[in-house]
Design a protein around this nucleic acid. Structure first.
Lengths: 264, 264
DNA sequence: AAATTATGTTCCAAATAATGGAACATCGAT
DNA sequence: ATCGATGTTCCATTATTTGGAACATAATTT
């Protein structure tokens, strides 16, 4: 999120907001953090920070090991397991993801837009369904993923501009969009044609084709994608798959309508 | 947790504690909750509750759909994905779980004790690794699972007594322990022999054999288990598997020692 | 071994945020 | 249109958080 390496200095308001910044710090770290590490990152008085961390530990959101290092708490897993298991959007989409996987033999993703990120809600792989949490739950940038661009294409132009204004572009590969202008142009195109590509923009050698999916109440705006290695997925093949991806997306939305009733 | 269906009435202290009670309420519900539902469950003034829910939504811990129903927020998935991916205990255990799965052909679990529950950190299944989050992250009772009883056997008797005093026994099957006395007796036995069984105590037709695993700093006290259907896993077979389960447990603990250094 | 520094914990008056009752909106169904 | 149910806002009171400094403990150097 921040391009500078220093303190997030989040202007978060409210008790909860401040605590969530800390939780973010610790869960984003590659390794458990010592008190002093967090002190430097959070830029808060020692006393305050200490009490905040104590509260987070008491609630099981963080854990403190025998060496005084803070790590994410396992209670988070319990919360997440429940959220995931009962998520209506995911439950409805799942069979259609499987169908799409069967039809193409490649990996299929379901993701939704949250803030400036795409959070992956589900993943169906070929041979062996990949390890849990391997991708599910992960947040990826919206500007360099097929699902992300498909999701953005659902927003009114003004909202897209606002959203893009607030993010910093990281150049993951040579193809990654690095300016709001070119990205916006592509998103307009995507909105017209109804599908998006990822031309090795997030990871070299990985391509995808995606179609937007949304719920009528706009709670979920995201997409589904077929992803695979560039050597196997030519751009020509991806163009062919645009239709089945869009069809699957349509079936998911139809499923939502039926499941949630016609009232909304 | 509560046997009565009514308001948890948690005597939680501090701003965060109160909010976590709400988060628990919503994530434990089978379906998204309306404001009024939560009002009844939480037993708080309307104004207070409304503001609290708003804060949780602002932070992405809850989500409010177009019908005014509150559901768990997807930000929880992101937190959990990180916690899981980087959990040292799990990373070290994983290869040994795979070995054990290969050797027996049955499902292998890794779980740790958190409060009165076992939280499953990993699961390795035979043919097809099971769907994500299917079990991982789930909290199960400690008194009727192999991993749970194995974990309890690591505690000093006094701590076990305290812990058992605070829980209410649900009789999941005819074999479920329903009193602290018989359970305590079995746990003593488990402590002596170094392995535990689940004799269809949590789910009819499902048995397991488990061995305790812990980290030296006592941050993780849990176990690994081999689980399967009773018709395939005779008690005789489970007795035979006690040795490989204990060996795998030993290797995991050795791995922890090497990884985390000899200093502790 | 003593001194020094780095690190972690506790305390409490002042600043800030949460509380909760009641008034105010909004929506659905008669 | 009216009524009841549901959801939202307001603000003086109350409770919590804040942050500086003193205190405690462990690690390192002299």
């Amino acid at each position: 999120m921040d391009s500078n390496g220093v303190a997030a200095q989040a202007r978060e308001t409210g008790t909860l907001g401040k605590l969530m910044v800390l939780l973010d710090l610790v869960t984003h770290a590659d390794t458990p953090l010592r008190f002093t590490d967090i002190l430097a990152l959070a830029g808060q008085p020692r006393g305050t920070l200490h009490r905040q961390l104590t509260h987070l530990v008491e609630e099981g959101l963080l854990e403190l090991d025998g060496d005084g290092r803070y790590a994410p708490g396992l209670r988070l897993l319990d919360f997440a397991a429940r959220s995931w298991a009962r998520n209506e959007f995911r439950l409805i989409a799942e069979p259609h993801l499987r169908d799409l996987q069967q039809a193409t033999g490649e990996t299929v993703h379901l993701g939704v837009l949250r803030g400036q990120s795409i959070i992956y809600l589900d993943k169906v792989e070929g041979r062996q369904p990949v390890r849990m949490y391997s991708q599910i739950g992960n947040a990826s940038p919206c500007y360099c993923t097929g699902v992300g661009k498909a999701a953005l294409s659902l927003l009114p132009t003004e909202s897209i501009v606002d959203l893009l204004a607030g993010l910093s572009f990281t150049s993951f590969t040579a193809s990654t969009h690095v300016s709001a202008e070119t990205l916006l142009a592509e998103i307009r195109e995507i909105a017209d044609q109804g599908y998006a590509f990822d031309r090795e923009e997030h990871e070299a050698g990985i391509r995808c084709v995606a179609a937007p999916v949304w719920s009528e109440d706009r709670t979920f705006m995201g997409g589904i994608s077929i992803t695979g290695p560039a050597y196997r997925l030519s751009m020509e093949l991806l163009h062919q798959w645009a239709v089945p991806v869009q069809l699957a997306a349509g079936r998911i939305m139809e499923g939502m309508r039926v499941r949630l009733g016609p009232r909304r």
